[in-house]
Computed example of a mutant assay.
Amino acid sequence: MRKLFMLLFLTVLACFELSTTAVAQYNNWSVGFRLGEPSGINVRKYFGTNHAFDLNIGTYGGLYGTKRSYRTGEYKSVGLTIQGHYLWHKALTKSESIRGYYGFGGQVNNRRYYPPRLNGDYENALSLGGSGVAGLEVFPVGKPYSFFLETGGYVELLQAPFFLSLNSGLGLRYNF
């Protein structure tokens, strides 16, 4: 799985370096990847003068350790997650090449849960909660891509109310 992500990363990076005709914009679509918690594909739609919707689809539970206490048992693997945020963003420089953003949304996770009652066996645990994020995005002048760094948190509502998790990551997006 890590080799696949590394190959994808290098392929996308090569495409970004070869492209020189587009100017990075924040009022369109952008697609890329995010490394962190969660890791995976990232899609962002910019609209209006300072709004966006951000969607992450990928893995959950790999960055901070695959073994973690949860309810009366524990997680022992990486799971699948879908995370979405409504964002507000603002230029932090006159050239608008650095933008700050924050937003709120939700997250759905699916992981293997090992409760004591199953004596070492697992069940799939689907969880749902709210999340928030804040970050910085850098648009290099004359390039069609952007870099981002963000942090936030996840508060689970269903299966384990108030289970907390730090969500942070960095990534690269192609803007078109």
Results as ranks from 00 to 15, higher is better:
His51Ile: 05
Ala52Lys: 03
Phe53Ala: 12
Phe53Trp: 11
Asp54Tyr: 10
Leu55His: 07
Leu55Arg: 06
Asn56Trp: 02
Ile57Phe: 07
Gly58Ala: 11
Gly58Cys: 02
Thr59Ile: 04
Tyr60Thr: 05
Tyr60Gly: 03
Gly61Ala: 04
Leu63Gly: 11
Tyr64Pro: 12
Tyr64Arg: 12
Gly65Leu: 06
Gly65Phe: 00
Lys67Ile: 11
Arg68Phe: 02
Tyr70Arg: 06
Arg71Glu: 08
Arg71Trp: 06
Arg71Ala: 13
Gly73Ile: 00
Gly73Arg: 02
Glu74Trp: 09
Glu74His: 14
Tyr75Cys: 03
Lys76Leu: 06
Val78Cys: 03
Gly79Arg: 04
Leu80Ser: 13
Thr81Gly: 13
Ile82Tyr: 05
Ile82Gln: 09
Gln83Thr: 08
Gln83Asp: 09
Gly84Arg: 03
Gly84Val: 01
Gly84Cys: 04
Tyr86Asp: 14
Leu87Lys: 03
Trp88His: 15
His89Pro: 07
Thr93Phe: 01
Thr93Pro: 05
Thr93Cys: 05
Ser95Gln: 11
Ser95Tyr: 05
Ser95Met: 08
Glu96Ser: 10
Glu96Cys: 06
Ser97Tyr: 11
Ile98Ala: 13
Arg99Asn: 08
Gly100Arg: 13
Tyr101Asp: 09
Tyr101Ile: 10
Tyr101Met: 11
Gly103Trp: 00
Gly103Glu: 02
Phe104Met: 13
Gly105Cys: 05
Gly106Ala: 11
Gln107Ala: 08
Gln107Ile: 10
Val108Thr: 09
Asn110Tyr: 08
Pro115Tyr: 02
Arg117Thr: 14
Arg117Pro: 09
Arg117Glu: 15
Leu118Ile: 10
Glu123Phe: 08
Ala125Trp: 12
Ala125Glu: 15
Leu126Pro: 06
Leu126Met: 11
Ser127Leu: 07
Leu128Gln: 12
Leu128Arg: 08
Leu128Thr: 14
Leu128Glu: 11
Gly129Leu: 00
Gly129Ala: 05
Gly129Pro: 02
Gly129Ile: 00
Gly130Asp: 10
Ser131Leu: 00
Gly132Trp: 01
Val133Thr: 09
Val133Pro: 01
Gly135Asn: 03
Gly135His: 03
Leu136Trp: 05
Leu136Gly: 07
Val138Asp: 13
Phe139Arg: 04
Pro140Asp: 00
Val141Gly: 14
Val141Pro: 13
Gly142Arg: 10
Lys143Ala: 07
Lys143Gln: 09
Pro144Asp: 10
Tyr145Asp: 06
Ser146Gln: 07
Phe147Trp: 07
Phe147Glu: 03
Phe147Gly: 07
Phe148Leu: 07
Phe148Met: 06
Leu149Tyr: 04
Gly152His: 00
Gly152Met: 01
Gly152Ser: 01
Gly152Tyr: 00
Gly153Tyr: 00
Tyr154Ala: 01
Val155Ser: 14
Val155Ala: 11
Glu156Phe: 04
